[in-house]
Nucleic acid binder design. Structure first.
Length: 416
DNA sequence: TCTGGGGTCCTAGGACCC
DNA sequence: TCTGGGGTCCTAGGACCC
């Protein structure tokens, strides 16, 4: 049996750990730049705030109902996520961390008392981390996902014990709620009258193979209770790394674009070094504000294969600026830029180049020192000059909570 | 005024190899 | 007059996930 553990309204729950006064009140967390709603408390759902809704469209409701609004604080969420996962690992040896707020557990060995087990885990995670979770248990991952949704509608635990349970559950599951069936496939399936997970499980293999390929067949099997997606406990290193942001303020200024793009390139370098990878390919893109129909629209990207795979910030910045120069056009006002590195390989096996003039060894040492300083004294304490000191393009984060668990200066204060 | 960010996997088709 | 067969690798695009 698999269990899917999912943190309830995770980002909101993280904020509430340190603001218990917000329990039972409507709370939302916004995306970067304070743009859209990406996490909602139950109270916020009830008053009609929708997922992914731009907050500025709901300012009236937010004010009237006293909704508490937070900018996203990924430092805090990442740390609390780690605590939840560690807690789960302490009660189960087979844990696959699936996302920041979800984990699959393999339950071989706890078959007899599933409900008691789940009840205790739920209670324990809450006590150890402050985060409420829901647990769905079923013979396959796809069914455990659905069971988890069912759990959220009830008391937080749902177990698929037999075929009758499973049948009943998938008959009551809308097709678009099935893991692996997204918007495009839902549209197609609804068109041919497939409304529920059960309808899907009755489709012909030949049809599934032609329209949804292997994915479709796998989902069908999993819905029938035949496990096709094993638990994967190894965290694979990333195959691509991206740093992309919408700017707090739109800009035409090449100087500001250079600051932003070089900062994103440096960030990619940090991420690469952290997982001990080097990148072979780099892409830079810039684009205008797609929501403003008055602006002339422009959307351009360019890639380069690096002469030698690298994770050195200075070198990545150099190529990023080269690419930026090629795609920058003075005629437009830019809203967003990004740097993506791909073709990653481990830094140990990196192929060198006979004609490489870059002082790779020296820069490697320098990177280690810079990373160390920034870790101890705060991000970007030491950076490359071109990254600039301005704030013009930086994120808007007006409702940011403190980094209670990772920064001594922001630790929770208790007045007695 | 204001609309996120970061990933994965699969497949088809073209380039290329012997 | 007549011009094969069997592969691999890479990339772009489209689907999906949180």
């Amino acid at each position: 049996m698999f269990a899917l553990v999912d943190c309830n309204n995770f980002y909101v729950s993280c904020e509430r750990v340190f603001r218990p006064d917000l329990n039972n009140k409507p709370v939302v967390v916004l995306s970067n730049n304070d743009g859209c709603i990406i996490s909602r408390s139950e109270e916020a759902k009830v008053i009609g705030l929708k997922m992914a809704e731009p907050i500025f469209q709901r300012t009236k409701l937010v004010k009237e109902r006293g909704v508490h609004v937070f900018s996203s604080n990924y430092t805090l969420y990442g740390d609390l996520s780690q605590r939840v996962m560690e807690t789960l690992k302490s009660v189960c040896t087979h844990v696959e961390i699936y996302s920041i707020d979800e984990a699959f557990l393999s339950l071989t060995g706890v078959e007899d008392n599933l409900f008691d087990w789940a009840y205790n885990v739920k209670k324990y995670v809450r006590r150890a981390t402050g985060i409420p979770i829901s647990i769905g248990i079923a013979p396959t991952k796809t069914l455990a996902k659905i069971a988890n949704k069912a759990a959220k509608q009830g008391n937080g635990i749902f177990i698929v014990r037999n075929d009758r349970h499973r049948d009943c559950m998938i008959r009551n599951t809308a097709i678009e709620k099935v893991w692996g069936v997204g918007r495009q496939y839902s549209k197609l399936l609804l068109r041919i009258g497939v409304k529920t997970a059960y309808d899907f499980s009755q489709l012909q293999d030949t049809w599934l193979r032609s329209k949804m390929k292997m994915m479709g067949l796998r989902i069908k099997k999993e819905l029938h209770g035949e496990s096709c997606i094993p638990l994967d406990m190894i965290i694979p290193s990333k195959k691509a790394i991206a740093t992309t942001r919408a700017f707090g303020k739109k800009t035409k200024d090449i100087k500001l674009l250079k600051e932003a793009v070089s900062t994103y390139a440096a960030r990619c370098g940090e991420k690469l070094r952290k997982q001990k990878s080097v990148a072979n390919l780099m892409t830079v893109f810039i684009h205008t504000d797609p929501f403003n129909s008055n602006d002339l629209q422009y959307n351009k990207s360019k890639s380069i294969t690096l002469p030698v795979a690298s994770n050195c910030s200075q070198e990545l910045i150099r190529y990023a600026l080269l690419l930026l120069d090629e795609i920058y056009d003075t005629a437009y006002i830019y809203k967003k830029a990004g740097v993506i590195v791909e073709g990653l390989e481990t830094q140990e096996v990196c192929q060198s180049n006979l004609f490489d003039k870059f002082a790779r060894i020296r820069y490697k040492k320098l990177s280690i020192i810079i990373d160390g300083l920034n870790k101890n004294f705060g991000r970007d304490k030491v950076k490359i000059a071109i990254q600039g000191t301005g704030k013009e393009w930086k994120l808007r984060q007006e409702k940011l909570s403190k980094r209670y668990t990772t920064n001594w200066n922001e630790i929770l204060e208790v007045k007695v």
